[in-house]
Amino acid sequence: MMQVISLLVENKPGALLRVTGILSARGYNIESLTVARTLDPELSRMTIGVDVEERLRAQVIKQMNKLINVLQATDMTDGRSICREMVLIKARTRQESRTALLKEVEIFGARVVDSSTDGFAIEATGDPEKLDEFIGLMRSYGEIEVARSGAVAISLESKKLRLQPPVPTRAAGSLAGNGVLNG
């Protein structure tokens, strides 16, 4: 089953590799991946779609949460969430089917972003499965080219982000024992 994982990650070198490394070390293939900055430029939001065996899903999230650059890893498949993706389609059409195709675009709520005698460039957003259907539909009109953005997801549940406070160093003289902090 496809697992959608949403991560809040420090925008630091190697952070992306660490996250994907957890999946590649177990031989999982990443189906989709998006990364972009958040409101805080030092943080990135990452959404990963990956096909993970049911019994290992919790383990994968735990491993990701262990990464020092990961502030939070959440399994979006578990709770209420919204998942959207964008697709750009270049559709070649014959003159006689242009109108029919435009009708489909309209029904789906997609937009034409470029038009030429060869055909159209179409932009659509939606649920990834919905987009699959739309792409299928567009194919029935002829040859198409597709670029998908990969899914982005946001949780609708109010999950508090728990950040760890700073810890005094050994140099500051109060790091207890082997340096553990209260959790």
């Binding site: 020092i68 728990r162 760890q164 140099a171 500051a172």
Partner: peptide, 16 residues
């Protein structure tokens, strides 16, 4: 300059 504190907001250590 001596480092007095370490701030790793994503490094979760649960001890208790």
């Amino acid at each position: 300059t001596p480092v007095h504190s370490i701030h790793l907001p994503g490094y979760k250590v649960f001890t208790e």
